[in-house]
Each structure stands twice: as C-alpha cells, then as structure tokens.
Computed example of a mutant assay.
Amino acid sequence: MSLSVNTEVLWIDTPQGRLACSRWFPADNPGKPPIVLFHDSLGCVALWRDFPQQLCQASGREVIAYDRLGFGQSDAFPGALPSTFINDEAVNAFAHLKRVLQIDSFVALGHSVGGAMAAACASRYRQDCLALITIAAQAFVEERTLQGIRDAKVQFQNPEHMARLSKYHGDKAPWVLNAWTETWLAPTFADWTLERLVGAIDCPTLVLHGEHDEYGSTLHPQRIAQLANGPSECLILDGCYHVPHREAPEAVLAPVSRFLGAER
C-alpha cells in the first residue's frame, strides 16, 4: 500500500537571488532525516517529475528538491557560470537552504552533475550528511562525456528542442544550455576531477550508473565509490542510459530504499 504524501512549495532567499523549493512529506512522518535532491545540468524540480513523490513513498522520508539559481523557477544567475560552480553549490545555495529549512542531518542524492554537488555537500558537511547517493554522476571529464555534450549541442539547434527547454526554464533556457555546454567543453575545465574537488566522504555511499550511459563510462561510478571512507556500493543498472530514475524507476527506488533501510 502506497504511503500518502503531502507537498509544500516555498521560496528560499539567498544573497544571489531566490530559489524555488519543493518538499514531499509522508503523511505519517517518522522524523527521519530528509533526502535532498540535486538536479542535473539541464534540470529543475519539475524535471524530476514524479520521482520525488515515489522516493518519499518508497523511503518513508521527506524529500526536498530545489531549482538551482538560473534554473526552473529560481531567479536568473548573475552572469556566466563559473568553473567552480559545483563546489559553489555546497558553499552557497545549499548552505542557505540547510539553514532556512533547519536541516540538521540529511541524505544527499544527486543526478549527473548534481551527483558531484551531492558529493561536495557530503564532504563539506561530514558531520551532518548521513548517506550519499549518486545517479549517473561524473567524476572527471571524459571524451565520452564531451562527445555526448557536442551531440546535444547540435540537437539543440532544432527550435523544438529549445522550446522544450524553455517550457521548464522560461527565458533562462539559452543561459541553461550554454552553462552546460560551454562550461564542460571549455579547455579550462578539462582537468576537473571529483577527487580534486572533495575531501573525505565518511558516510555510506551508493553509486548508481546506467549500463549504456551516453555521458560517462563505468569508470565514473568506480571512482566515486573509491572516494568513500565508509561503506560503498556501486551498481550498474542493466539496460539503462543517463536518466535511470525516469527510464526504470524501480531499478533505482529498490536499491535506494534498501540502502536507506538501515537507520541513517
């Protein structure tokens, strides 16, 4: 029987602008630490679709998702995206969200580049992050990643693709696309690695990666799992590509629920 879920939409004020935030609560809230979601390079709360509600029901935990500055319903980003944007998310936006929502302990779950942001938060808030979960996250700049971005850049020359992006990001859509493509393709970003970004990750870590991920080989989940000082588990999801939580939700929800089943 599915748990009943309540929702809340709110705004988080930061010095850089307002963040749109959504929360999903189990009706019978057991008071477990919440799961905070970090979206991908073209993502936003709406593009998680029904995954947050499914995750709330499957885990019995509150789920929190927010649009990063420049994305979705949040305010525009002031200028170009800096190459330090992954760590900046942990230092700036997430710090404000954590304070405003009075989040003491939490579980960090990120998709794609959001996985790197979740790892940065797990490292920066080592005493508070009880578990880290990544889905299709990158750990370094790989040619496969760059080629996938180049291919996507060509596809977005089709007005229909930009129209779909504008549906979720409004007039910020061109900035969102450039923030992804031009940052990752820039020569100055070529030597980025997750190992250089984050320090120790002490919490249990679950790393999920699609077998056919078009933006990264299975070297990425292996390297992410190696960062963990605590217990780590790496699962390659059969038949999945870059968005397993939409392609095969149960293949993600089942291991996540099992992983969080131990009181974390």
Rank of each mutant, 00 (worst) to 15 (best):
A179F: 02
T84K: 01
A136T: 10
Q157H: 13
P174S: 00
N6Q: 13
Q127F: 05
F156C: 05
Y241Q: 06
N229W: 03
V207E: 04
R61Y: 14
A122G: 08
I135W: 00
W175M: 15
A131C: 04
D202E: 15
G239V: 09
G115Y: 02
A80D: 13
Q73G: 07
A186L: 01
V100A: 13
G115E: 05
P82H: 11
S4L: 15
A254M: 07
R258K: 14
E143F: 03
R23H: 00
L219R: 14
W24Q: 02
A254S: 14
H169L: 00
K167M: 11
N29L: 09
L55W: 00
A136D: 15
A58T: 01
G170C: 06
G43Y: 15
A248R: 14
A248G: 00
F156A: 09
Y125N: 01
L253W: 02
R23K: 12
F106I: 11
V154G: 03
T205G: 07
E247V: 13
E8G: 02
Y66A: 03
K172W: 03
H212M: 12
P33K: 10
I12V: 14
V198L: 07
Q102Y: 02
E160H: 14
T14W: 12
V107D: 05
H169T: 00
E250S: 10
E233S: 12
R68A: 08
V141G: 06
V141K: 08
L69G: 14
G17P: 11
L260D: 01
M162V: 11
Q53K: 13
R124P: 07
Y241I: 02
S166Y: 00
E142W: 08
F189S: 02
E247W: 06
A65T: 10
L253R: 00
A136C: 14
L69D: 12
W24L: 01
S2L: 15
Q157V: 04
G72K: 05
P231T: 05
V198C: 13
L253Y: 02
Q147E: 15
P159A: 05
Q138M: 12
T145G: 01
R144H: 09
Q127P: 00
D40S: 13
Q157T: 12
N178H: 14
S232Y: 13
L42T: 00
L146C: 12
C21S: 06
A139F: 09
I64P: 01
F259P: 05
W184T: 09
P204H: 14
G79D: 11
A119D: 11
V63P: 03
S41E: 03
W180Y: 12
D75Y: 08
V207C: 07
I135T: 08
R246T: 12
K32S: 10
G60F: 12
L97I: 15
Q155S: 11
S123K: 02
R18C: 10
E195P: 09
A116C: 08
D50A: 06
L227C: 05
H161T: 00
R150F: 15
N6Y: 09
Q54S: 15
A120G: 07
G148I: 05
R258T: 11
K172H: 02
H96C: 06
F94H: 13
R99I: 00
V36L: 09
C21N: 03
L37I: 03
G216Q: 09
H161R: 11
Y168F: 15
L260T: 04
W180D: 01
Q53P: 00
D191K: 13
P26H: 04
H245Y: 13
F25G: 07
V63G: 08
L227T: 04
